[in-house]
Nucleic acid binder design. Structure first.
Lengths: 245, 245
DNA sequence: CGATCTGTTGATGCTCATCAAATCCAGTGG
DNA sequence: CCACTGGATTTGATGAGCATCAACAGATCG
């Protein structure tokens, strides 16, 4: 059930069957969330740590002007809002971009996990730090790169992340996200997103059909998008992950 | 010595003299860093938790095109890179914007702190979560707001943060930051920054002389910048902090 | 099968970057 | 003490990048 999550954690350290078991026993029943529905809502008190088993989601905020800003894309195997229990109200929401299956570890059980599974806790902690450095890189992306490079950078990141979870097939993976949603992540409109996407297509870097992205020329896309995967901190267990593509 | 830090932590919970003492005993000697010099450098292994005693600094990254993107401004009392020890190399740098005085808690002593001072650890943890939600808000700012509102929003945030550390005098505080540096934080050039700044001045929202910012009309600036301080999570100890201005 | 959502393309205009030049100021060395 | 230098700020002119508005085609769905 937690296959994708542990695939990802393997990039930090290999988990033991006991640890996998310990984590599974702490979780609540699976919650099914329909596309478009909020998994976590702004203003609500945080109720625990969530793990996305299936589907894609996005963390977002809305400005007074009604503009949506996506703060992160969440894919199967992602664990989110670890350690959020010190805050009394969520300052953002998380919405299901596709039908999702989610499990939750209630706050009171998280403490037990820290005490009883320190090694696993470190791995989860590591994944939180990766989320944080990814957020920093997004700010660099939105603040400092022109839109075409911004998209190229994002697609590189999503490929690597999908790959660490075991969601890829060579250089392609399911990307069930609309151009409008991609635009909301990068601070551009869906109209401009369409133009930028077609540029990457015309230059033979990618194809995107039926919600499946295929990267045709990894080196070119990586170079064009100024993508340096060091911020994903994968080199502890697999130093060459981004190289052997 | 840690006055500003504990002022800020007071927004979460009041620390006991014993806790203040415990933290002070863990720190290394004060390090003096010249203006323009890096306090923490990209590629280096993280060497511990840092506390800024005096001066301002910025967390930043540089793109291949040579553009600087500021990820955070650090002011006296800020503690940074808590829990960073799980990552093997820094993915960004921190530079002193003014002459700075910094102390460091080495990694091996941080563990002891967690064990011996759980209550204090929670407070430090809380400040890390606030940094994280501040980063999210920066992404919203850069990705979704026009430049004048972006600046207004940033200035509101800086006032509140300076205020929680005890660095303000009514509605004014030392802001020893050039317009170029402000621009690098918001993804605009220094030329455009100058125009935007003069707009806020002309509309009688602020003055900025000799490195001191004064907010002339808090309500107007807040409204204009779409500033909602909930993301700073100050309402646990002082629900009205942003209101009683 | 109409209704809605998504993606595409064209036309137009605004925001901000870029280039350039002038002013101001702090620091430096003669 | 003053000339010189380099950084910070300001203002103007021009152009690039992206938003906005609009129209349409294809896909999806109740």
């Amino acid at each position: 059930m937690l296959r994708y999550l542990f695939n990802r954690l393997d990039n930090y350290q290999t988990s033991t069957p006991q640890e996998i078991d310990a984590l599974e026993r702490l979780t609540s029943p699976v919650r099914v969330v329909a596309k478009g529905e909020d998994i976590v809502q702004q203003q609500q008190p945080p109720n625990g740590v969530h793990i996305l088993l299936e589907g894609w989601a996005s963390r977002y905020k809305v400005t007074r002007e009604g503009k949506y800003q996506t703060l992160a894309f969440l894919m199967p195997g992602d664990i989110f809002d670890l350690h959020i229990n010190l805050i009394d109200r969520m300052d953002h929401s998380i919405v299901a971009l596709t039908p999702c299956r989610v499990i939750t570890i209630p706050n009171h059980r998280v403490e037990a996990l820290y005490e009883q599974q320190p090694r696993l806790s470190h791995a989860l902690f590591w994944s939180t730090l990766v989320d944080l450095s990814t957020l920093r890189e997004w700010l660099v992306n939105v603040g400092s790169r022109p839109s075409a490079q911004r998209l190229a950078h994002l697609l590189c990141e999503l490929l690597i992340r999908a790959r660490t979870a075991g969601l890829t097939n060579d250089l392609s993976f399911e990307l069930p996200i609309t151009q409008r949603q991609l635009g909301e992540a990068m601070g551009i409109t869906s109209v401009h997103m369409s133009r930028v996407m077609s540029k990457l297509r015309k230059e033979d870097m990618i194809t995107l059909n039926d919600g499946r992205l295929e990267i045709l020329d990894w080196e070119k896309l990586k170079e064009f998008g100024d993508f340096e995967p060091t911020y994903l901190h994968l080199d502890r267990a697999h130093p060459d992950l981004a190289k052997d593509l």
